[in-house]
Structure formats: structure tokens, C-alpha cells
Simulated assay, not measured.
Amino acid sequence: MTRFDRYLLSQFLALFGFFSLVLVLVYWVNRAVGLFDQIIGDGQSALVFLEISLLTLPNVIRVVLPVSAFAAAVYTTNRLTQDGELVVMQATGFSAFRLARPVIYFGLCVTLMLVLLYNVIVPASRTVLSARTAEISANLTARLLVDGKFMHPTDGITFYIREISDTGELRDVFLTDDRKASSRTTYTAQRALLVRGDVEPKLIMFDGMSQSYNLTNQRLSVTHFKDFTYDLGGLISAGEIPARSLDEMTTAELLFPTEAILAESRASRAALLADGHARIAQPFLALATSLIGFAALLLGAFSRFGLWRQIIGAIVLLVVVQMVNNAGSAAAQQSALMWPLVYLAPLLGVGISFVMLWVAQRPRARHNAGPGPNSSERGIV
């Protein structure tokens, strides 16, 4: 790698890191707002929110990196053109394809990052996230037991606890069951314990009273009890780990699906093949986007006012490549024989880039061409 290649690659990587950080923060904050309300609203701590947020970050980074690569390529090329650095290199004899060599290095670096994300980091993080979510769902104290607040775990149920002791004992419990249309039952107890039964969780109340009001005949029945067991199975799920989604499966399982994998995922063979090949093809979109951004700006002439027309054209080409990517992915989901369409968008993006690079150096070729066969005659004339 020459000094020029290292210099240009360092410029791309520096801007790539900046744009990636900004886009990841924007995207993550947008998603974290809803996640915060959901987790904190269910009684979880801020540490749980931080843990779940970190587990969702790999998927966010996977989405952001191709866009960051495109933005870094466009911004760096535009700045180097305005400063005249690329113009000087072209004047020394560098062709468009030679100038694009550090861009290819840069695109391959981002592609390698995405390969690791798609095939290793994201599936692992999704697996841990699914298991952690199921564990949190099974945490009854965090989901239901919040002292000093009226909770509504399901329609028709109101639950209140004045205080939860350090040992887990519930004090001054109030529970109203209004799910039946013909009656309404209210339980009050001085103390209570939440225990996990053989099948379903149970609430054991001590020294309390049950008041059942019949709406049909408008009669109130009052029962005092020393201890009473209330079944919470209909209110709180046990938090079982669900079947794995396609994002949690390994790439080998998707590319070579067995009958067991098909039964577990409840998806078609075409869907598994499309997702598996997408993990190989999608990372190369970073190479395609960075080359598109660089080649499109290389078409423009030197201007102190920037290359806005070329930038807009590069964005349009990026949108076209993404539309082809969406169409190819959708078609691959329909038939197990259509998985090669997943590779269409990266190949199209790289092909468009090479065509633009070829067009960008054609004027230089004509300008550097030697005098024609009749040049001496024109000089004499």
C-alpha cells in the first residue's frame, strides 16, 4: 500500500467513525425512548434497561454502517476535490481506477466488519437478548410487585401493595378481581407472599378479608381468613424461552436447513435460504455504496462551490440500489431457487461504480492522447 493509499484510507476511516457514531446515537436514542418506557414501566431497574439497550446495539450498527460508508466516501471525496488534492493526483497521471484503490480498501474494511456483525455478533446478541427477555418476564417481583402504586396486570385486575419488606414480604395488600360480569371480588390482607408453584405462581395472603359483591341480586358476601391462596397463573406468564427466530440461528443452519430447523423456525426453506445468503451478500453493500459515492463525485469537474449535482446523483443511485435489494430479497423469499437474487444489489452497485469510473477517465484519455495522423498537416496550414 503506497503512502497515497494510506493517506486516503485514513481520511475515509476517520470520517466513517464520526458518521457511524452520530448515526448510531441518533438511531439508538430513537429506539431507546420507547424501550425505556416499556422496561421502566414494568418495574425494571435502569441497569436492566442499559443491558437490553446494549444487546440491541449490534443490530443498530449493522443497519448504520453501509450508510456511514457512503457518507464518508462522499464527504471525503468532495473535500479532497475542493482542496485540489484529487486534481493534482489526476494531473500526475493517476487514472480513476487507480484513485479508487484506497476506496476499495476502505469498502472491504467495512465489509469485513459487517460480515462479523451479520454472521457472529448479531445472532449471538439476539440469542442472549431473547433469553434475557424471557428471564425478565419470569421475574414476578419486577413485573408486578411495585409498592405504593396501583398496578393493572390485566383487564379487570387492580393490585396495590403499600410496602415490600427486605425479605420479600408484602404488607397491606389490596386486590380487586372484576373480570366476571356477574360479580366483583375484593381481597385485602395485612401480609402476603408471592411464591412460585409447580405450574403457576401463587399469591398467599394472611390475616385478610374477601368481599364478593353479586351484581345480579346485589348481595355482598364477606369472608375473613387467616390465610388464602390466590392463583396468579392467568395474570402472569411463566416467561418460557420462545422458539428461535431466523436472526438467532447460525448462518450454517440457514444455508443448510434440516427438517428440525424448519419446524423450529416455522418458516419456509426459501425464507431460510434467503436470510442465510443475505448474511453473505449484504455486507458487500458497504463496498458498493462507498464506490458509488466516490465514482459519482469523480465525474464532476473541479468547483469551489462543491459537487452538489454529483452528490444528489449518488444519493439517487443509492436509492435505486436499495430498491433492487428490497425487490431481490422479497423475490428470494418466495422460492428456494431464487436465492441468487440476494446478490443482485451488491453486484449492481459495484458494476455501476466501475462504469462511472470508466466514464470519469475517458476525458483524460482523450486529453492525453498524442497528436493525430494529420496533425502535421494542420500545423503547416
Rank of each mutant, 00 (worst) to 15 (best):
190 Q>S: 14
155 D>R: 10
364 R>A: 15
47 L>S: 15
128 V>M: 11
85 E>H: 05
115 V>Q: 09
310 Q>L: 01
102 P>R: 01
270 A>D: 04
79 R>C: 07
110 V>R: 06
310 Q>F: 04
123 P>L: 00
220 L>H: 06
141 T>H: 12
4 F>P: 10
6 R>H: 09
335 S>D: 14
180 K>A: 15
208 G>P: 05
45 S>N: 08
121 I>D: 07
306 G>H: 00
267 A>W: 06
211 Q>E: 11
250 T>W: 04
208 G>T: 07
4 F>S: 12
314 A>T: 00
240 E>S: 13
266 R>S: 11
186 T>E: 08
262 L>H: 00
166 D>G: 12
101 R>G: 14
55 L>P: 08
306 G>P: 02
258 T>P: 05
170 L>F: 04
381 V>A: 14
312 I>A: 13
342 V>W: 04
27 Y>C: 11
176 T>C: 08
191 R>A: 11
280 I>S: 15
101 R>W: 14
267 A>R: 15
15 L>R: 14
299 L>I: 02
310 Q>N: 04
204 I>G: 05
283 P>M: 02
194 L>P: 02
188 T>W: 03
49 F>I: 05
5 D>T: 12
176 T>N: 14
107 G>F: 02
34 G>P: 05
31 R>N: 13
267 A>K: 15
241 I>Y: 09
202 K>P: 00
91 A>Y: 02
1 M>P: 12
370 G>P: 08
161 I>G: 03
75 Y>C: 12
380 I>E: 13
319 V>H: 05
313 G>Y: 01
272 L>W: 02
225 F>P: 06
36 F>H: 13
123 P>G: 03
356 M>F: 08
39 I>T: 12
71 A>H: 09
225 F>Q: 05
72 A>W: 03
138 A>F: 03
312 I>R: 05
293 G>H: 01
357 L>P: 03
163 E>C: 01
155 D>W: 06
263 A>H: 05
153 P>V: 01
87 V>S: 09
203 L>T: 02
302 F>C: 07
18 F>Q: 12
269 R>H: 06
257 P>C: 01
193 L>S: 14
35 L>F: 06
111 T>K: 01
230 Y>T: 07
120 V>I: 10
30 N>Q: 13
20 S>I: 01
375 S>C: 10
25 L>M: 05
89 M>E: 08
201 P>L: 02
287 L>I: 00
133 T>E: 11
309 R>K: 07
12 F>C: 07
198 D>K: 08
313 G>H: 00
